[in-house]
Design a protein around this nucleic acid. Structure first.
Lengths: 241, 241
DNA sequence: ATCTCCAGCTTGTATGATAACCGGTCAGCA
DNA sequence: TGCTGACCGGTTATCATACAAGCTGGAGAT
């Protein structure tokens, strides 16, 4: 038995219907404000039950692409996705990567400033533990970058602003894959670079520990800006193009 | 017929179920990876039909909060909200409003800093026009706050980072209603407050015009922080609770 | 001409049934 | 004992049908 592969699970019908409707709306086939065909008609057109159409519509409503009113019908939203922020799953273009990272620098810098004011004892201890872990671990090992991520996550949480926390988690998840790729493209980390990272982290933590918000923000920005350059993305405020 | 008010349309049941489930997941009541109660059980608990639960689940799936598998059940995603960032449509709680506004302060401050470096001549002219318009318009008029919004939007665009622009537009759309409400609750704007706003705007613009990024960022933060206080939301770095 | 009311469309909700799928149980067998 | 495989209960996915509630437009009454 050669060339076995993982079976492709049959996609849910509602997913497929939602996908096609979304594409139709985004392509302009249904103009903003226009009325969509009725659920009954869509069900017949897609050859599915009305319930499948309703589940697909439910998703479009949650994405604010359509708006339904009982007795009237479903209408394409005037401003699709105005209250929804979503990034492309894999920003391959370097410029996008740069811009997203720049946004992260701004937000995480501010988060560090807040953390300097608000971090409690246990959060400080958690940061300290991460620093120690990174120092003893062999540079470039898995647990090394894992502790790195935890250090940043702890600061985000210590900002005591769940929106900072959530947004940074969101950005981090979107950047993760691209960063890993950029890392492998870049020359292997020099020992000097590892030392620099450690020094930057400690500068951030020192400022937080002594409750110096502006210094913490500045240190975090320096750290992330340096990280951008290490990844070959240019500095925070770059005179790009 | 006295004291007429806009009728409150009965909310859809699936919206309410989705809201409660989302809150339960975000609050950690259902840990990541945990299995949710079955649709049948949820339907009984919420006292709705199973179909309503399914529509709510469909929304959570599209938000990547849960993942369902036929025959097994629905499970909380390991990393909720990985490729999607959304806010509750109407943050009524003051603390949420404060936290979201704080995020805006951080991002828009950085955007002003970038704009100081990157704004071109036409963008500077647009900002200047907004300032002039706000000065001559009667304080508190519609066109006044409209020019205000345009001033901020121009700065966001001048940052030349579409993600800053998009994210600030997104936050603005989410804060708009709440701000309007907070405004009406607060005592009517004093003329002195109007003058203060104008002075803050001009400080921001002056720093951008002379290409002083740190000053532009600081001025924007001062402006937005003052705006938060005018709306009764407390300062940027507040020792809340 | 204007008003009232209702038929007929829409979406929202409920109910019941069937199919596909999964995990565990347990009799049957070597 | 240890393994296999059919079976069972529970779950999601889908379908079909019915009724409730909201809206529109026109027939019919005034």
């Amino acid at each position: 038995m050669t060339s076995i592969t993982s079976v492709t699970r049959a996609p849910r019908l509602s997913d497929e219907v939602a996908r096609q409707l979304t594409a139709a709306i985004r392509s302009g086939e249904f103009a903003p404000g226009a009325r969509l065909p009725s659920e009954k008609e869509l069900a017949e057109r897609f050859e599915v039950s009305r319930m499948v159409v309703r589940e697909a519509m439910s998703r479009l409503k949650s994405d604010e692409l359509v708006d339904t009113r009982q007795g009237l019908g479903a209408f394409v939203s005037a401003e699709p996705g105005k209250s929804l922020f979503r990034l492309e799953p894999d920003p391959a273009i370097v410029k996008d990567l740069h811009d997203i990272f720049q946004l992260r620098v701004a937000v995480e810098g501010a988060a560090a400033g807040l953390a300097a004011v608000r971090a409690n004892r246990s959060e400080l201890a958690a940061m300290r533990a991460c620093l120690r872990e990174m120092k003893v671990s062999v540079a470039g090992r898995e647990d090394d970058i894992e502790a790195d991520n935890r250090f940043h996550a702890t600061i985000a949480r210590a900002s005591r602003n769940p929106y900072f926390d959530r947004f940074l988690t969101f950005l981090g998840a979107n950047l993760h894959g691209a960063i890993a790729k950029a890392r492998s493209n870049t020359a292997a980390r020099h020992p000097s670079s590892v030392l620099a990272v450690q020094a930057e982290h400690e500068a951030v933590f020192a400022a937080i520990e002594r409750r110096d918000a502006p210094a913490a923000e500045a240190a975090m920005r320096r750290h992330l800006s340096a990280a951008m350059e290490r990844l070959g993305l240019g500095p925070f405020t770059g005179a790009r193009s």
